[in-house]
Every structure is written in structure tokens, then in C-alpha cells.
Computed example of a mutant assay.
Amino acid sequence: MNAPARILVVEDDDSLRTAVATTLRAEGFVVAEASDGRRIAEDLDRAAPDLVLLDWMLPGPSGILLAARIRARSDAAVVMMTARDELDDRLRGFAEGADDYVVKPFAMAELVARVTAVLRRRGRVPSVIEVGDLVLDPDGATVRRAGVLLDLTATEFRLLRFLAESRGRTVSKAQITTQVWGYEDIAPNVVEVHLSALRRKMEAHGPRLVHTVRGLGYRLATDRGAA
């Protein structure tokens, strides 16, 4: 079995850094923390991270400068945490080596899903996701339930993949539309229509796995308890 992926969280907001680190540790990652990037070389040597979660606005060197320094010294992935979500900001970040962005304020489920997706592309987390008798293979773009291959549309597969990557946690409609369709502004019933079709295909071979959490969103889990 591969060793857990290592993550360095660089964030000057103590409460946010602690919340992010706690969440990632609960997901099984090995997490190191830093409140700024003044000693980024030492932090990289100490933590040997597979991925750096990097705040843009930091005391001392900014995250955008640190991204370039990290790229020069390490092969770690870089995910920016920032309130700066204009296209020019994103393009600049990608030009300096960012692999992805998480825009503040963010839900922890989205953060974990994005981190997991980046690490999966680098081969640092298992490709296959299993929830009960559900087996989702992102690389092969296949889903099996109780051993039966499910015939999903591309949208249903993206929807189930996001729910599977966020398994055990409640995700909102806004998070789903952003992750599955790329934007929030879609017709209110679109998520329900695709979820209903997905549920029918899944529940033809076993009990319900996608649960509605009233007033909050949806949760993929083998139990019905609230996330």
C-alpha cells in the first residue's frame, strides 16, 4: 500500500489553517503547516510535500512568488487558496506553476475534492474509489455496482465522481454545479433531474447511496445519517 500523500498548508490565518489541516488529516493525509513563506525552502525540505496548499496573500513573499520558488525547488503540486478569482489572476497563477485554485470562502468538501483530484492525476492517491459495493474508476471512466457495469452519461459520471470524491460529506447544489458544469448559474431543477436518473441506475442494483440532506444538499454514503 502506498504511503499517505503529504501536504504542506501555507496560510497566515490561524483558524483557517487549523481547520484545513484538521480536515486533511481526517482524510488520511500527512499534513505540515506554515504561517508564511519566509522559510519556504526549509519547509519544503522538512515536509517533503506531494502538494502545497498556498494562500495568495501572505506576509512576506506572496503566494504567487512562492509558487515559482516551489516549482524551482520541488516537484510538489501547488493549489492556490485565494479570494482573487478574476481571469487575469488565475492565468497569472497558472503561468507561475499553480495546478488548481480554491476560491475563498470555500467548503471543505470542495477543497478535499480538488486536492484529491490533483493528487490522483499525479498518482499519489488510489485511482479507484469504493463506497460499499460501488466501484468508480476515474481513469477507466467506469462505474460498477454490485459487480454490474453501469451505463452512465458523461454528466452522470462527473456528478457521481464529485460525490464519490466528497463521500461521507454533504455537498451543496452550488458546489455540484460548479464542479460538474463549471458554473453555478443553471436551472434550479437540473441537478435534481440528473441525480434522479443516476439514482435509478444505481438503485437497480442495491440500496440508496446518494442521500438528500434537507436544506443543505446531497451526500454519498452507505448510511443515511447527516454529514
Rank of each mutant, 00 (worst) to 15 (best):
T82S: 15
R84P: 02
R84T: 03
R84Q: 14
E86A: 13
L87A: 15
L87S: 09
D88C: 14
D89L: 04
D89N: 13
L91F: 08
L91P: 02
R92E: 15
F94R: 15
A95Q: 15
A95C: 11
A95K: 13
E96L: 10
E96T: 05
G97E: 11
G97A: 12
G97S: 12
D99P: 00
D100R: 15
D100N: 14
Y101T: 01
V103L: 10
V103N: 05
K104F: 02
K104M: 10
P105E: 08
P105F: 08
F106E: 08
F106H: 12
M108I: 00
M108N: 15
E110V: 08
L111G: 02
V112M: 06
V112P: 01
A113M: 06
A113N: 12
A113C: 13
R114E: 03
R114A: 06
V115Y: 02
V115L: 03
T116D: 09
A117K: 13
A117W: 07
A117L: 06
V118F: 04
V118D: 03
L119P: 02
R120W: 01
R121N: 05
R121P: 01
G123P: 15
G123D: 05
G123C: 10
V125M: 05
P126T: 03
P126V: 00
S127R: 14
S127N: 05
V128T: 13
I129D: 00
E130D: 03
V131P: 09
V131F: 04
V131K: 02
G132L: 00
L134M: 12
L134C: 04
L134V: 02
V135W: 06
V135K: 11
D137L: 03
D137Y: 08
D137S: 12
D139T: 11
D139I: 10
G140K: 14
G140L: 02
G140Y: 03
A141L: 11
A141I: 09
